[in-house]
Amino acid sequence: MRVSKAPEERREQLLDVALGLCAEVGFEALSIEQLTREASVAKGTFYYYFASKQDLLLALVGRYVDALFVELEATASRLTGSGLERFRALMLGATTWKTGHVTDAYAFVPLLYKRENLPLRYQLFDEWAGRMREVFLPLVERGTADGSLAVDDPEATTDLVLSIWIEAGGRMFDRALATTTEEAWVDTLLRGIASLTSAVERILGAAPGSFQVPVDGAFLGASRAPFLAALDGPSDQRA
């Protein structure tokens, strides 16, 4: 029996069902027919909310990122201390949130590393950089003013930090995906994360180790299978 729901509630339901099916069969193998059947809606209902399966992917990514930024903005509003201390706390908060929502991320984030999705990946990365800038620039400005960070130009420095996190971070995952064993995958990510974090510390004039966060090698190792599953899935998208 189909139940009438408000438009936004119905859209959220479709995204929830899609996320659950992604965890079971993967996004590539998921069909629109399967999604609408599981959600107990007509196929036309799907197309009322989403233009295509690619549009569904964008919606899943967008919802995940929106939730992350809501958390970051809320955390930033509660922070106290020096600019460096606030920067470190926000980085730790972001890492904690992403770790807690890693299952959701596995459903669609690996798809951004498929070669055919490269333009989409850079489009999204560019959008995320703008939103991250709004959160982190005030912390760099504060750190510059209170002397906890050694920065000449907060705006240019923030842009440089974001390019390291986003651009260099993406290339780090590309290198990891080119490895052939889980051990090499973990080693590439561990060394890469440490190096990128160290570079951010130097650029901000922070002491070594200021922004290093604990990274679980076993956790990274477990991430390899979902990434490879997404990359090795069928290239066609069933209607």
Score class of each variant (00 low, 15 high):
3 V>I: 13
6 A>L: 13
7 P>S: 07
7 P>F: 01
9 E>W: 02
9 E>A: 10
10 R>I: 00
10 R>D: 09
10 R>L: 06
11 R>D: 10
12 E>A: 15
16 D>H: 12
16 D>L: 11
18 A>E: 08
18 A>C: 04
20 G>L: 08
20 G>Q: 12
21 L>D: 02
26 G>K: 11
31 S>N: 06
33 E>W: 02
40 S>A: 14
42 A>W: 01
44 G>E: 07
45 T>N: 06
45 T>R: 05
46 F>M: 02
51 A>D: 12
55 D>P: 07
57 L>T: 00
58 L>Q: 11
59 A>W: 09
61 V>W: 02
62 G>Q: 01
63 R>L: 08
63 R>T: 04
63 R>A: 08
64 Y>N: 10
65 V>I: 13
65 V>F: 09
66 D>W: 00
68 L>P: 01
69 F>C: 04
70 V>Y: 02
70 V>E: 14
72 L>N: 00
77 S>D: 14
77 S>G: 08
78 R>W: 03
78 R>Y: 01
79 L>T: 06
81 G>D: 06
82 S>D: 06
87 F>S: 02
88 R>H: 04
91 M>V: 11
91 M>A: 08
96 T>Q: 10
98 K>R: 13
98 K>S: 13
99 T>C: 03
99 T>L: 10
101 H>K: 09
101 H>Y: 03
104 D>F: 01
105 A>P: 01
106 Y>M: 00
108 F>D: 00
108 F>I: 11
109 V>S: 02
110 P>G: 08
111 L>R: 06
115 R>Y: 05
116 E>T: 11
116 E>Q: 13
117 N>E: 10
118 L>H: 08
119 P>M: 07
121 R>H: 14
121 R>G: 02
122 Y>L: 15
123 Q>T: 14
124 L>G: 05
126 D>Y: 04
126 D>T: 15
127 E>V: 13
130 G>R: 14
130 G>H: 08
133 R>E: 07
133 R>T: 01
134 E>K: 15
135 V>D: 06
137 L>I: 04
139 L>V: 05
139 L>E: 10
141 E>G: 03
142 R>P: 00
143 G>T: 06
145 A>R: 15
147 G>H: 12
147 G>A: 11
149 L>V: 09
151 V>P: 09
152 D>W: 07
153 D>S: 06
153 D>M: 04
155 E>T: 11
157 T>M: 10
157 T>Q: 10
163 S>K: 14
164 I>R: 06
168 A>K: 14
171 R>V: 14
172 M>Q: 14
172 M>N: 09
173 F>N: 04
175 R>K: 12
175 R>Y: 10
179 T>Y: 03
183 E>N: 05
185 W>D: 11
186 V>I: 14
192 G>M: 02
193 I>S: 12
193 I>T: 12
195 S>M: 10
196 L>I: 09
200 V>Q: 04
200 V>Y: 00
203 I>Y: 05
204 L>N: 05
205 G>F: 05
208 P>N: 09
208 P>L: 07
210 S>M: 04
212 Q>S: 15
216 D>V: 01
216 D>M: 02
220 L>E: 04
221 G>K: 11
223 S>D: 10
225 A>L: 13
225 A>D: 08
228 L>W: 04
228 L>D: 03
230 A>Q: 08
231 L>H: 01
233 G>W: 05
234 P>Q: 12
235 S>G: 11
236 D>Y: 12
